[in-house]
Design a protein around this nucleic acid. Sequence first.
DNA 1: CCGACCGGTCG
DNA 2: ACGACCGGTCG
Lengths: 410, 410
Amino acid sequence: MARIFYFGIPWCKWAACAVNSIYDARHKSIVNRLTAIRTDAGISQTQLATALEIGQSDVSKVEQGQRRLDIVELVEWLAALEYDLFSFLSEVGLLVPLAPAAPVVNVASEFVPDPAHVVAVTGGTEIRLVGSGTHHDIVLANADIAGYRAVEAEAVRLFRSLNDGSLGLQNREAIRVALDFAIRRLPLLNPSDVYRHIIYRLYVREFSLKSPKQSWVRAGGEALELFIEDLYKSRLLSEGIEVEALIAKDRRLAALEEMGISDRVGAAKLDIALYGIHEGKRYIFGGLHVKASLAERVTDDVPCSEIMMAAGYFSGLWTFDAKDHPPRSLVNYGELGTSLTGKPTAKRLYIERDGSFSICFCYNTRTAASYHKTPSQRRIVVSTLAPDKDTLPSVVLAAWQDFKKARGLK
Amino acid sequence: MARIFYFGIPWCKWAACAVNSIYDARHKSIVNRLTAIRTDAGISQTQLATALEIGQSDVSKVEQGQRRLDIVELVEWLAALEYDLFSFLSEVGLLVPLAPAAPVVNVASEFVPDPAHVVAVTGGTEIRLVGSGTHHDIVLANADIAGYRAVEAEAVRLFRSLNDGSLGLQNREAIRVALDFAIRRLPLLNPSDVYRHIIYRLYVREFSLKSPKQSWVRAGGEALELFIEDLYKSRLLSEGIEVEALIAKDRRLAALEEMGISDRVGAAKLDIALYGIHEGKRYIFGGLHVKASLAERVTDDVPCSEIMMAAGYFSGLWTFDAKDHPPRSLVNYGELGTSLTGKPTAKRLYIERDGSFSICFCYNTRTAASYHKTPSQRRIVVSTLAPDKDTLPSVVLAAWQDFKKARGLK
DNA sequence: CCGACCGGTCG
DNA sequence: ACGACCGGTCG
């Protein structure tokens, strides 16, 4: 039973407008917005009337406020305009959250977003993840409801197209586009939540050609590398730095060979190469290891990273640190730990104690960044992907300048 | 522009109910639902009227369908009932997805044994693995049909019991028992096929309490360690060697500490400890890293193994080398490679070139054993688990004798 | 074709 | 509780 929120305008007494709400200011804004949606879409009153199988004069009357729409009529009106009802209600100020979030529910697996339960709450949007005969409500802090719905619509469009090939996209490209769209449309969200609760779960829900979770492993992993390449390309090119996702085997081998370490590391142990341009020549000066989540798999990258650093190259770990603990909740706490008090998690030690990476860029804002001086001097930094928050470009630029100095390139 | 859903009932022409939609079936359902929400909440018409600051008769009129609500009124009505608008619209059938409904079933490649297709063929038994609307017929060489059926029956009994807890077994224990039963009952089969095509696939087919594949990852992995401990315990105890699965965290830490390497490796990087008994004292002299399949995950164990070897300990890799390539067939060729001609697979290099493990014990009989002298002198050995074929006990015994000599224990 | 991608599990 | 377990994918 859904009683979490109510949608209303508490300061206006219904009694006052019960008889003549047609003249009410809120009705004016509804009517004005309906008219604007129609004209923005380049639809004439006559065309709309035809679609609704009513007379043009009925459309005119509604838009002048002389005839009011009940809920069924409004729904069909918006349908004819192909406009989302919740976006509409949001725009005309009819959605107001009541209570703070979310009863906690115990869970099992296969949790995917329920399109019928997307509600505005204080400070964000609540979505419902349903699965195994139960559900869990997750609050996406700083997400507006229209933004979430737009992201869901785009992801659904992209992922469904994979089932019939209608857009001609590879899976990894569809995921990259969906993730890019979501990060841009919901820039204030925790990026790790966007990745894990929105994009991953919608992919699992919509993609049915192959087992979606296993497909996600392959396609999602490569999509993340493409996403990162694309994200930083423009931010770094102006600094004379090129970012290259090493998905093609020969490109990866070329990168490892230029560093002179291809005989000592597996051929597939670097995800992103960083090249600096100096006097028209292109030098590799480092790279990024990309992991959506860490688990024991972060160990894979440690040997290569240590070899790179020993050879004088920059070697960063880029991660969403995505991980939730279903028995308790579906809150995405990550594995690097949310607190600096108490014993550090095992994963932190790779960076803070062992210094196996030059730096760890973490995009789960629940993760605790390194605060005090670390034993290895290597740090975990945490931010969103907003250009003014994310220090990756400046860190990479500094690494390039250090590299030039060390190699006597001036 | 948000176009996720449209809200409407396409088969009903608006025109038909524009004048008198109050009598429309959809209005009835709206009105009935509003009434039900009120009564379910134990609110009287009078109480609701007071909250809305209207008369009780107005409430009555609305609930009888004599007076219809526009959108502003509906929003406030639901607000007074503390009921979610989106849930309401969903319940009265006003939310219709734009695209055809999402395909709910994504049962792609879940290949599980078809109990109806088990046939004797020359040299073995053919079973049918069904999934994705297609199937693959697999020949289990050297399996008699009665043996296969007995194994399937036992596995089904064990795995079904996990759904209702009827045998009181943990998942890993049920898997261990099933694997043990199968290996004993079908001793001439390729052990990797027993593991992968029989035990794994029956677990996926029968266990339904949690997502079976992910459950397998956890439970199957630990079951394998228990299985190995149990398998070699009796064969090695007579030689004064104890085999201990390091599933308990404190036992694992104790093993790493006795080797003096606990500060340099992650706490969970060894699966089986090997202890020798000398003059009533128990010395750790090595261990086994266990992997059902390799993938990139074998890298996890490399650093710990190299540290163990550098410190003078025996460090073996025990693997089923289980891997098939479904698009082509479901034959379990492994990743170490079936041929010694041509370029060695990347996985072989860990042992044969880099010598990162003392030895690799592989129980996929399709895998090619090291034949020529290897660069590292370290070898891949391949066999079944039959006591007269499996050289593991003698290799481990030799390692214990070498250890005693090196440490001056005589 | 051979390889690394990642998340639900459950002790 | 927090960690390592492993296999279908698809380039």
